[in-house]
């Protein structure tokens, strides 16, 4: 279930989230007392005009940035209270990011890019190899493991990025316009992949997008407007 009234008890609980940017005397109030609850296994799309704060919200949920006020509780842990290094370890364990610009490391092969987050775990070399291969197989790139990002198409790069995001089996995936830089066909492939991850593997996915057709693939769509979320479509609770 997804709720906006701040009453849920699910996996992700956001309470009274504020984010204010200051540049000199200029104050930009991006998020204003935002509430959100997402249960495990949900697939939620966020829409909203450019500059409405979608990326800001996703960064806060992923522990990449700190809110001006409010709390974010994931699986019982208030991440706004974690220190920088605790937060880094929390990210490694719980969050998989997928970005619009893929953000692969250009000097590493597809295999190495996917293996990167596993360097922070205690897994043995053989276990790491096994997991990386499984993740790449899942995104359909088992035959491109030795390729460098520049030798891959945009869609393939994004699939490597998804493999990197899921290889640690994180608690949830945060995708910020993952199809923004792709042509229609590649975009569909990526969306198919996300839907499959949600349906077949029960992944919790939060997706930011500008694209109506992308949003349609998610069971629940929310709108970010004037610093708070409103329901656009789907099964939002009371």
């Amino acid at each position: 279930m997804v709720r906006l009234d701040g009453q849920g008890q699910g996996l992700i609980q956001v309470r009274g989230l504020d984010k204010v940017y200051r540049r000199g005397s200029e104050v930009i109030h991006v998020l204003q007392g935002l509430n959100l609850d997402v249960d495990a296994g949900e697939f939620v799309a966020f829409m909203g005009p450019s500059g409405s704060g979608k990326t800001t919200l996703l960064n806060l949920l992923g522990g990449l940035d700190r809110p001006s006020a409010g709390r974010i509780i994931v699986d019982g842990v208030d991440i706004t209270r974690l220190s920088n290094s605790e937060l880094a370890r929390w990210r490694a364990r719980h969050v998989g990011f997928v970005f619009q610009t893929f953000n692969l490391i250009p000097v590493l092969t597809a295999f190495q890019n996917v293996e990167l987050p596993l360097l922070l775990t205690r897994l043995s070399r053989a276990e790491r190899r096994q997991r990386v291969e499984a993740a790449l197989r899942l995104v359909g790139l088992a035959d491109r493991m030795k390729h460098y990002p520049r030798e891959l198409s945009g869609g393939q790069e994004q699939r490597v990025a998804i493999a990197r995001a899921i290889v640690t089996d994180p608690t949830f995936l945060l995708c910020d316009e993952p199809t923004g830089d792709l042509d229609r066909r590649s975009a569909e492939e990526i969306l198919d992949l996300l839907v499959a991850l949600h349906r077949e593997f029960g992944k919790t996915i939060l997706l930011v997008t500008h694209d109506m057709r992308a949003a349609e693939r998610a069971p629940v769509v929310l709108h970010l407007d004037k610093g708070v979320l409103v329901e656009a479509r789907g099964g939002v609770g009371v």
Binding site: L64, I105, P117, R164
Partner: peptide
């Protein structure tokens, strides 16, 4: 800078 930021998203600590 961007790549270092990406490493941080993957959970690399400041010390790393």
């Amino acid at each position: 800078t961007g790549e270092l930021g990406v490493l941080k998203t993957l959970g690399f600590t400041d010390t790393n």
